[in-house]
Structure formats: structure tokens, C-alpha cells
Design a binder for these strands. Sequence first.
DNA 1: TACACTCGAGCAATCGTTTACGTGGCGCGG
DNA 2: CCGCGCCACGTAAACGATTGCTCGAGTGTA
Lengths: 337, 337
Amino acid sequence: MAQSNKPISMREVAELAGVSIATVSRVINGLGGFSEETRKRVEKVIEENGYIANQAAKGLREARTRTIGMIVPDITNDFFSTLALQAERAFADEGYSVLICNDANDAERGEHYLRTLISKRVDGIICISGRTTFDEDEVLGNVPIVYVDRFPERSHDIPRVISDDLRGGRLATEHLIERGCTRIAFMTGTHSALSVQNRGIGYEEALAGHGLAADPALRIELKGRVRRFQEARETLAAVIASGVDFDGIFAMNDVIAVGALLALRDAGIRVPEDVRVVGFDDSIYASIATPALTSVRRFPEEMAKRGCETLLSLIEGNDVELEDVIPVELAVRESTA
Amino acid sequence: MAQSNKPISMREVAELAGVSIATVSRVINGLGGFSEETRKRVEKVIEENGYIANQAAKGLREARTRTIGMIVPDITNDFFSTLALQAERAFADEGYSVLICNDANDAERGEHYLRTLISKRVDGIICISGRTTFDEDEVLGNVPIVYVDRFPERSHDIPRVISDDLRGGRLATEHLIERGCTRIAFMTGTHSALSVQNRGIGYEEALAGHGLAADPALRIELKGRVRRFQEARETLAAVIASGVDFDGIFAMNDVIAVGALLALRDAGIRVPEDVRVVGFDDSIYASIATPALTSVRRFPEEMAKRGCETLLSLIEGNDVELEDVIPVELAVRESTA
DNA sequence: TACACTCGAGCAATCGTTTACGTGGCGCGG
DNA sequence: CCGCGCCACGTAAACGATTGCTCGAGTGTA
């Protein structure tokens, strides 16, 4: 029963069953053209020897691997891991496996991953990245690609599933303004992804719409990679120490917002009494934090689902809409009460 | 420059360069046996036409795919996503891609994934699961497997990289006892993984070691899948409502612990004054929670690194140690202050 | 009896690589 | 001048599957 070494091949099955390899293939794929008796014999051999088809060979022949690639900036971030989880599940349900690539916002790494994925001949790619140098990938064998959440500026006619970041930025900022904030800081990383930039634009629009000036001192940019919340915590601590005055914070995402909450607490600044804070993503961090974080809710499950549908559609050669914008909404909690 | 449709094949490169396909192969792999002039000509054609080798074909021929499979229970949990991130990076550094499979603690799903991975002829599998029905996978083509963190009871001679869960359970419980707790609840999911069970055994050993009885009413088992913290929160709320008396909680992981913290707060029970809480994993949730959570620190990065090394070693046909136990330590924070 | 048709099955090409082996030309030593 | 060896390269057989084509035997019909 147990295989001694190598997995058994189709030819061995054929030999053991005393039929041709073509017949085995037909039986396996239920194509007909074989007798009931032959079917039983073949299936018995398959069962007894634990034959499992070699997808590498199949993929070579059929020019499709039933594998898709997924490029993610940081799977450690709740938003992205939720996205990845849902996408993986959606693809699995359709018979696809998912190769995961964590590019850590590193363009070079991302490009290397892209080459690898093409080389593996994935059937499609879900890309969450604003960095990919794009002249390249069209050359790189025109694999179907769908951007989800993040996308680069020059993304030609590549479809994307994004959330309404501009509106999210506006919602968050206006909410702070309504609560009486007049000096609202914007905390962000250095991102080339348009989706992230749009949050900043929404912020500025909201300020302008209410006659507030966008003080450059209130734009707090995190250097380096935004990992966990530690960097945000330290950066904000430095800003506080430098004496910059503010009464509201809009953070590009919940991880940064949580870092801000901790820095504020460290400095003895009360939230929401002294400073109100709004995050982005409405991830698990927002519910865990104290005070619970007001955050712009997005729908990673929905985005994953749509992204998956779009990509599959593309793979099947259908037309798809270029831009699919998922709405956002504000989840109000204690941090702006 | 841009490819019209299909990626170009090696034969086309050969034709364009006016050499045989064998020569192209030799140039690409730097095997020698070609002139400098030929090399230049071939490389020029490759460059100009954006040739990228087909790994499916290569894999078929070489009987290795440079892909490894990873079965994870819940990539949404910070501990596992950190593990996955590190593993993916470690493998990528060695030229391997990672297929990610989220089995959601579902045995059936896990087994299906296993078959798929075998079918894809992955070179090895990192498995974080206590569920796999194991008689199967030895049959399933004896691919190298390494268990990380979780492993099933009957895991024959499959190597594993685990943390010292028993000691972790004891550390956590003894810490609570030292802080004066006498009625300590243990919150867990229903897990067949030995690693999880060991935490409970450590808990019981610690109790027994201090002459405390293990009250069955204090063993709080979560039904269903433990996703996020909501279920723990609700379950503990019910326990509180039912009037069970306790002054300490040891939770199987941080997600459950955070749910407990929230339920306690909902019920107006103070932490640590009325009830002290210890989690497991020392994940990001522990630092974010208020009060900050005392937790058994584990080292997912280290575990991922070791797991990766072990698997690669196995793939290369070397012997490896069967059990690699990574120590744990207690990170004391406010929830037990 | 002859013919057409169907059914079950095999043959062989093909996908894109790698690699063992064969081969022609050239240089060089004897 | 002959022969040997090496260099640079080509030929072809794999790897494990799919699939169009062929083919023989059996059946039904006229």
C-alpha cells in the first residue's frame, strides 16, 4: 500500500491495469470511450497504489497551472491577512492554489517576485502594491493581473478593486472637525500607492472645505517600513516632545493609529478629551485598543471576493470593469467620543 | 519588445539565435560548452524577447518544483501570520516559493489541501496542524514534512519544531498563583493538537504542584472555530453570568485572552485587581490591549527559521532531529500587576 | 453478404525543459 | 601526414500528462 519512494505515474497505472496510458487519462477525466470493466480495473489500480496526478505535467500540457500568485505588502497586518485569507479561500473554492509573496513594500523584492510568478506560469496575479515598476510586467508575458487595494500610478488598463480612499480620508477628517478639532495631524508612511495618497487628499479636501489650513507641521511621515506600531509610537512621541500643537489625529491605518494612542498615553495626553484619533481599516486593532478606535471601515472580505472574481473572469478571457470601488463607512468609537 | 501573446519558449530563442535548443539551455545555466560569441547572441535574443524559463517544464524534467506548501490554521492570527511571513521569507531567500493553505482547523479541508500540494509536487510541506489524519500522508507520496508549532498525536517520525508549551502553561499558571490567585480558569478551544493540549497539562501540573484542585467548572472550552476574539468574549460573559467564581484566567492564546479582557470590562470586573489574566503567544494583541496583557512569549520568527532549515535539510536528504523545542518565557505586564 | 456505423482502445505528437551522447573541425604532437 | 583529443555544438530521449487520429471488432440494416 505505502509507496516505497517516488509517486507512481500514469504510465505505471496503465501497465498495472493492462491498458494504454490514454485510456487511464480518459478514465480519470471521465471522458468516456472505455468500458465499465476497464474503468473499474483502472480505478482499482489507482486506489491501491495511491496514484495522484502530476500537476506539473498537466500544467505543462494544458498551459495552465491552476495556481495564482498574490503579492502582499505585509501579511502581518490584520487588513492584509484578512484579505489574503478570503482570497485564498475564494480561489481554493474554484480549484486554484495561491502562492503568497510578501514584498514588504520593497520594489526590488516585488519585481523579483513578479518574475518568479511569471516563471512559474501562474494563471493570474493578485497584486497589492503601488510599487511595481510597470513598463516591465506588460512585457513579462501578459499574465492577467488585478490590483486590489493598492495600485501604482501608471497602471495602464489593469483592472483594480479598491476602496473609496478619498472619501474615507474626507469622512475621517470631517468627523474630527465636527467634533471640534481644528488642528488635525495626518500620520502616514511614505507610499507611492495612489490609494494611500488619496487618503491624504481626502484629508486636505476636508480641511479646505471647512476653511482650515493644512499645516505642513501636521503632516507626520513615518520613515522606513511601517512594521507593527512601534515606529508610529516613537515618531509621534518625538513630535509631541517638539511642542507641535494638535487636537486631532487621522492615521493612514489602524496600526499607526494604535501607535499614536500609545504615544499619547505615554505623554499623559487624554483621548478623546485632549486629542481625538481616527484610524483606517477598522481592523481588529481598532476594537482591541483602549479607548476603542474610531476607524474608517473597509471590507477586505468583499474586496478579496471581487478581486478574485475579476481575476477569474480575466483568466477566462472576459472583459471586466477597470475600476471597482468598494464604499467605506465610518465606525465611530470612543477615541472620538 | 512587448510580447504579443504567449511567453516565448526556449525553442523560439534557439531559432532566433540560430543555435540549437540545447545550446540555449547550456548558456542559461552557465554549463559551458559554448563560445563567447554564441553566448552573447543567445543572451541578446533572451533579453530582447523577454524570455522567462517555464518552471513547470523545468520542474517536470527535474522532478522538483522549488515550491513548498504551508498549511496554516488561521493566517489572520498574528502569531501564525508572523510565522508565515518569516517562513515565506526564509524560503524565498533559498529560491523557493510558498503555497499557502488556510485550513481553518478543518480536518477535511486540511486533507484536501494535502492532496493538492502532493499533486502539485511541492518539494516539501510546512504543516501547522494537529488534525491531519496521518495514516494517509505517508502513503501520499512521502513528501518531506515538518510540523511547526502544532502537530498531531500520531506523528510517527515526522520532525517538528515546537515551543515548550508544557512549560509555558506551567509558567503562566505559577505566575498567577504567585500573584495570589487560587481559582484559576483555563480558556481553550477544542484542539487535538498536542501542543495546545500541553498548555492545559502545564496548567494542571502547576495547580497540582501548589496543592490546588483543578475545578472542571474552571475549564472553559470554546465551541466552534476560534475566530477573532468575539467568541471568547461571549463565552466568558456567559460563564460570569452563571456565577462561576474565579480570580485568574489563563488563556490558550492572546486572541482568547483579549476576548476575556473585554468580557471582564463589560461586566465591570477590574483587571488585575479582581481577576488577573495571562495570555499565550505574546503577539501584537498583548501589547495593544488595555491593560497590557501578561503573556507567554514565543518566538515565531525563530520557529519559522528552524522549521525552514529542517525542511530544506530533509529535502536534501539529510537526517534531522525529530524534535526541536524552542523555549518560552513570560512577558509580565499590567494584566497581572 | 456487403456496407456503414459505433464503441473501446491504442498510437503518437505535443507541452518546454534537461542531459547523455554523438559528431565535425581544428590544433598539435610524433 | 596521421591520429588523437578537445571544443563547440547538435540530436534525441526523457519527464508525465492530454488528445486527435486510427483501427479492429461487433452490430444493425438493406
